[in-house]
Design a protein around this nucleic acid. Structure first.
Length: 281
DNA sequence: CATTTCACCTGGTGGC
DNA sequence: TGCCACCAGGTGAAAT
């Protein structure tokens, strides 16, 4: 479900609601998935800790957790641990009241001192939950570059010599972190590049067009609260509006918004891929 | 190493 | 209404 704009929206919403709050108790379902760290260790590690901040890294949501003992939080407190949430395709991270009935497929419930609850719900269980103690190991870092921060030269270097399609390369999280199927298709349309083009054969000018298009699309989508294609909602349960701005994604057969040519759907890297045969070359 | 394919899951949709 | 095939925004392991 969620790509960079949706994850960013959720992370901001959760941050606004839980920053400075403290975990009273953490409950995890007994299911084998979606735990990257055994649920017992997550529950023990989280108990008593305060949220220093919540932010996005690639498609991951990182909760920076403070010490468990101190009652008072100081500004600029160093994180001692991280709770890392990946939403997979159908994951949702919700802030509710403790009394709100838990919906089906709730895998984690963090009851907070304020009386709120932070819940992780994921029907397909493609999401992952991980807990890291920073004294015992490295902090989490997304593998690829942030598309909103990368410069022209570094962006071009990512694709140099690649023999795979530009669409597949955009989806590769080790290159760029946070781009998924929707925003790969939408940015390729806006850059006028066909998704099957070989990444390593794009000109420097085309790559720069793509970088700019990607930034524009991602920023615009963040402003609109992400794309609600199926069931995506933010931390408050609100839908996003960027789906109304899609030029190609899930518009197969419909007329291109620029030239009225029917949008085509093909499969690349096993993913539905949408483009305009007239506008993209 | 780079690239491709497939399995992992549940739920919604559209055809019959 | 019911049944079934098919599709879905992601990833990582296995195969090539």
């Amino acid at each position: 479900m969620p790509e960079l704009p949706e994850v960013e929206t959720i992370a901001r919403g959760v941050d606004a609601r839980v920053r400075g709050d403290r975990v009273v108790e953490a409950w995890f379902s007994g299911e084998r998935e979606p735990f990257k760290t055994p649920p017992v260790r997550q529950a023990q590690g989280l108990a008593g800790r305060a949220f220093l901040s919540v932010y996005r890294a690639g498609k991951h949501i990182v909760c920076a957790m403070g010490p468990a003992a101190d009652e008072r939080l100081r500004d600029g407190e160093q994180a001692e641990a991280q709770w890392i949430v990946h939403l997979g395709m159908t994951g949702r991270l919700l802030v509710t009241t403790a009394a709100a009935p838990a919906e089906k497929h709730t895998h984690a419930r963090l009851t907070l001192k304020s009386g709120r609850e932070l819940r992780f719900v994921d029907p397909r269980r493609f999401g992952r939950l991980e807990f890291r103690e920073l004294q015992r190991g490295p902090a989490f870092g997304a593998p690829g570059a942030e598309p909103l921060e990368i410069g022209a030269a570094a962006f071009a270097a990512l694709f140099r010599g690649r023999r795979t399609s530009i669409k597949a390369a955009l989806l590769n999280q080790k290159l760029l972190a946070g781009v998924g199927n929707i925003y790969a298709d939408e940015s390729l349309f806006r850059a006028g590049i066909r998704p099957r083009r070989i990444a390593g054969r794009l000109s420097r000018a085309e790559l720069e067009q793509l970088r700019q298009a990607l930034k524009k699309v991602l920023r615009h989508a963040i402003r609109l609260g992400g794309s609600s294609v199926n069931d995506y909602v933010d931390a408050e349960g609100e839908r996003g509006f960027f789906q109304l701005q899609h030029f190609v994604y899930q518009r197969a057969g419909e007329p291109c918004r620029r030239c009225a040519t029917p949008i085509r759907r093909i499969v690349i890297a096993g993913r539905g891929t949408h483009y305009c045969p007239a506008c993209q070359h």
